[in-house]
Amino acid sequence: MKITVNGTDKEVPVDTNVTELLLYLKILPERISVEINLDVIRREAYDHSHLKDGDLIEIISFFGGGADVG
């Protein structure tokens, strides 16, 4: 099935959960947050948050920035 992660289309197996997605993308679950279709997913819920075809996923972390960096 097709999902969009941080603006990029990805093909993943049906029923992939968030933990599996992070593993596939080689992203450590520390210091990041995940949002599915605008809903923030709690870390404890990664294992049972299954993705659906067409889901919009955002994975964020922390970067250099002070006041507005545009």
Binding site: K26, E58, S61
Partner: peptide
Amino acid sequence: VTVAVRRVNILNR
């Protein structure tokens, strides 16, 4: 320290 919240670069890990 203050930090910005941005997308993880999924293309370059």
